[in-house]
Design a protein around this nucleic acid. Sequence first.
DNA 1: CGCGCGCGTTCCACTCACCGGTACGCTGTG
DNA 2: CACAGCGTACCGGTGAGTGGAACGCGCGCG
Lengths: 251, 251
Amino acid sequence: MEDLDTVLGKAVALLRAFGPEDRLLPLAELIRRTGLPKGTVHRIAGDLVHHRLLEKTAHGYRLAGGLFELGMRAATERTLLEVAMPFLQDLYERTHETVHLGVRDGAEVVYVAKIGGHRQARSPSRTGGRMPMHCTAIGKVLLAHAEPSVRATVLSGPLERRTPHTVVAPGLLEQQLERALETGLAFEREESTPGLLCVAAPVLDTDGATALAAISVTGPVGRFRPEAHHNAVRAAATALASTLARRPGGL
Amino acid sequence: MEDLDTVLGKAVALLRAFGPEDRLLPLAELIRRTGLPKGTVHRIAGDLVHHRLLEKTAHGYRLAGGLFELGMRAATERTLLEVAMPFLQDLYERTHETVHLGVRDGAEVVYVAKIGGHRQARSPSRTGGRMPMHCTAIGKVLLAHAEPSVRATVLSGPLERRTPHTVVAPGLLEQQLERALETGLAFEREESTPGLLCVAAPVLDTDGATALAAISVTGPVGRFRPEAHHNAVRAAATALASTLARRPGGL
DNA sequence: CGCGCGCGTTCCACTCACCGGTACGCTGTG
DNA sequence: CACAGCGTACCGGTGAGTGGAACGCGCGCG
């Protein structure tokens, strides 16, 4: 998984030992997760604290502010985020539902932004978090507009069944992707999380072929009417796309 | 500045060599900024690329997505951000001006969130970025509600004059802080950036004494009427404060 | 009570990962 | 064509990093 033969590898492994849900991990837990010897973990963790990448509390370690600052400088994410924010803002204001901005990384979706108000649906997604592609609207629309090789790889890989509604039949999935290509919209109906619906539209590259990112609106079954938001999502995505196209130097 | 005697220190120095404005740095530039020997930089940069903390392009290196993902997991920033987002959202919707959420780190302000629409004023702040305390509304209100020792340290330190309007007289500044304590609001009038006005309110701890964070609204001279937003900013800050107070385990 | 277990911390001698000087190839420039 | 600046590759010496072992603590259980 990680390269544990070098200091750097061990340090990164330590940082990555923190899952998206973990706030505070005791030394012992870090030892377990990384498989590194006690002394080593103790020392490296100490060094990381010194560099403000970790914070030490009475009950364990937590990721520290230095990481946040560095993370917010990551080039592509940051510029995408800054350019997109106003559009996401508008979209939220029109829908008052949870709005996501996501990009593809390997066979997964990475959420670059998530904004929502007080009434937002309880969703497992987090800014900076990952989800499988086959069971999210953003994932589907990104997959539909990805290179064929990527699509093939993902579709032929294992498609985890996350809820009873998850589509795991490659055929049916492929059909949905085709529809996404035609209509410029993809959907999720409780396929990743029970009770959640989602519509997504692609942010296309200048060539109009590949997707740079995708925007989605999510809401709870019951109140949420996906049809009501088709236009808004599509509008936000295309507006963002053309703004990105005007940018010099790309992302 | 950094500890360059250890691999880890060098690696961190490399990552921190990227300033808030830098997107792409060539190897040679990294060498210059870090002062490390060529071979060393080349090797460590390569390792960082391997760990997805750096990305290598034809024209240089850039901070990569792995950093973004790690950064968004930093405990305090993340939870603060998630809890605060709906309130910031509301505030933006009411004002349609740039909204900031900031915390204090040492003698500086770190912006945890910045949201704004298409009409937002051009401001140098960035999410994850830093600013001095004495010339920003958020900084002043955080300083006013900080421990006396912190206040003393900052006030006695060098107060950089960033614009002709920057308040550098410790006496006048202290007076403003007192007013901030009384009224629960602090202001900036083109003190950090020409053409920008700002109002900030503190997000107080349960004890009501120290400030956990601060929320501000920023706009351009001319259109922007700070008085019009006093109540909205204060309301957002106190609402966030009471929500945080209800949270188990604090931040 | 006291025994034992799990946790965090400290220590230290070995060794291998890291170091950084040197040398090479490429590209654009005067 | 010479040169300067950059990125890449190599390699022997060495000390930074390693991780096993031992210590002290607090807690829960017998």
